[in-house]
Write a protein that binds this DNA or RNA. Structure first.
Length: 291
DNA sequence: ATTTTCTCCTGCATGC
DNA sequence: TGCATGCAGGAGAAAA
């Protein structure tokens, strides 16, 4: 694989508006759920049906009159349960949801409104349109996109553990960073948290997944949990007001140890944080702290 | 030889 | 301007 050559020696990816990873999706869920649950949907307005997959053309007909029973999350998918099915939402790389008065003028990237019976609406904004709005009847867990997802990293139900990662990784030659970002292994770990968790666990992200010990996977599983929990806590207190028209993730840049810190000193040992491109994604790591 | 599994690459869209 | 980003799908390789 030929490394990409950049004009500037140290490229730092923009992190002021980070892509939704599991903590952002969970924070969104917690923000919108109390404003949605128990409400009845009047209709849906689709201004742009071309998202990651086409928005179902009969979405308004499917939703109108339906009462919202709950808002759950599976991986990075939000599941809005109504009386006769589930609305499946994904925020892709740039999506955001908020609840605003339904007569608020729509901006150029405001693609879908779910209009509620109280004058408010759930509005999806997604400049890059990698998000998704889908409809599922029956068990949403059987939907093609959800059926083969790996375990949730946060519940202490024993499904996600160092032992699990160790077992799934035997014989695998791919880089451990790609391994933990694979939603079929574990859901909700995107590039930022993968890099941060590997730093915390002291593991070189480029190492083959199958050549990491059980003990180190134990530390990695803990690191993934701790990072996600901390990010949800930060998001829960500073992220945004979901019934407000403004608000970007204030966020957690100051807590990042390696992601986006190419060329800067490691906060632990002072050695320079490196960036390597693999699989067209940036990997950030400290060569001294991570082996 | 055929099927299954694994890894890696592509494409989508747009802000900076 | 070209790059970065999540993620399904597919090409091609490797294993079964």
């Amino acid at each position: 694989m030929v490394p990409t050559v950049y004009r500037n020696k140290h490229y730092t990816p923009p992190i002021h508006n980070p892509m939704p990873e599991l903590p952002e999706v969970e924070t969104t869920r917690r923000g919108i759920a109390p404003l949605l649950e128990g409400r009845r949907i009047e209709t849906a307005v689709v201004r742009q049906p071309k998202l990651r997959w086409p928005v179902p053309p009969d979405l308004a007909r499917m939703l109108s009159g339906q009462k919202i029973e709950s808002v759950a999350r599976r991986g990075k998918y939000l599941l809005v349960r109504t009386e006769n099915g589930h609305l499946i939402l994904h925020l892709g790389m740039s999506g955001s949801l908020r609840i605003i008065p339904s007569d608020t003028p729509a901006g150029p990237h405001d693609h879908v409104d779910i209009v509620l019976d109280d004058g408010q609406c759930l509005r999806l904004r997604d400049p890059r349109r990698f998000g998704a709005v889908l409809w599922a009847t029956g068990d949403p867990g059987l939907h093609k996109l959800l059926a083969s997802l790996g375990p949730e990293p946060l519940p202490e139900d024993g499904k996600f553990s160092g032992e699990y990662l160790f077992r799934k990784s035997r014989g695998r030659t791919r880089q451990v960073r790609d391994f933990i970002m694979d939603s079929h292994i574990v859901v909700g770990v995107g590039n930022i948290y993968a890099n941060e968790a590997l730093f915390r666990a002291g593991i070189d992200p480029r190492r083959a997944a199958g050549r990491i010990s059980r003990a180190r996977y134990g530390r990695l599983a803990s690191a993934i949990r701790e990072i996600l929990v901390a990010a949800i806590q930060v998001g829960g207190t500073t992220l945004r007001d979901f019934s407000d028209a403004k608000g970007d993730p204030g966020y957690f840049q100051q807590t990042l140890m390696v992601y986006g810190r190419d060329g800067q000193p490691c906060k632990v040992c002072g050695s320079t944080v490196r960036r390597v491109v693999s699989g067209n994604r940036s990997v950030f790591f400290c060569r001294r702290c991570q082996r």
